[in-house]
C-alpha cells in the first residue's frame, strides 16, 4: 500500500482528522499539523480563485517529485487529503474515504459537525480500506 497519510479538514480550515499509514512521514507535533492543515486549506482556497474560466473547485492534485497529494472537496466544503507515492488509484481511494466519511461520521448522532472526528466506526473502516496500524 502506498498511501501514507489521510487528513480531513473542515470548512473553516481546522484539522478534524489526521492519520499516518506506514513509515516515512516526518514526525510532527499536533500543533504543527494544525498549522499545515490551515495553510493547505488556504492554498486550496487560493487555487479556486485563480481559475481563468469562472468558479472552480480548486486544486485536486499537488504533485512533487517523489509523492502526490490528492485533494477532494466535498459538497459541504470539507476537504479530504491523501498523501501517497505516485498512486494511480488515489482518486478512487479518495472517493471511498469520502463514502466512509458520510457513512460512519455524518450518519453518527454522536458526531458534532465541524468538530474532530472521534468515531470508532470511521477508524475501523479507514483501517480496513487503507491498512495501517
Amino acid at each position: 500500500m502506498t498511501i501514507f497519510g489521510l487528513w480531513v479538514i473542515n470548512k473553516a480550515g481546522g484539522l478534524v482528522y489526521q492519520r499516518n499509514f506506514g513509515d516515512g512521514l516526518p514526525n510532527l507535533t499536533s500543533n504543527e499539523y494544525l498549522v499545515l492543515a490551515g495553510t493547505l486549506h488556504g492554498i486550496h482556497a487560493i487555487t479556486s480563485r485563480l481559475s481563468p474560466t469562472g468558479p472552480s473547485s480548486g486544486a485536486q492534485v499537488i504533485e512533487g517529485e517523489t509523492f502526490k497529494l490528492n485533494i477532494l472537496l466535498t459538497h459541504t466544503g470539507t476537504l479530504i487529503f491523501l498523501t501517497s507515492l505516485v498512486e494511480p488509484t488515489a482518486d478512487a481511494m479518495l472517493q471511498n474515504v469520502y463514502e466512509i466519511y458520510t457513512e460512519a461520521v455524518m450518519k453518527n448522532p454522536f458526531h458534532t459537525p465541524e468538530m474532530p472526528i472521534r468515531t470508532e466506526g470511521f477508524d475501523t473502516k479507514v483501517t480496513a480500506l487503507l491498512g495501517g496500524r
Partner: peptide, 13 residues
C-alpha cells in the same frame, strides 16, 4: 452507522 462514545458504552440505540 452509529458509534457509541466510550463514556456512554451502556447505551444501545
Amino acid at each position: 452507522n452509529i458509534s457509541i462514545p466510550r463514556d456512554m458504552s451502556q447505551l444501545s440505540c
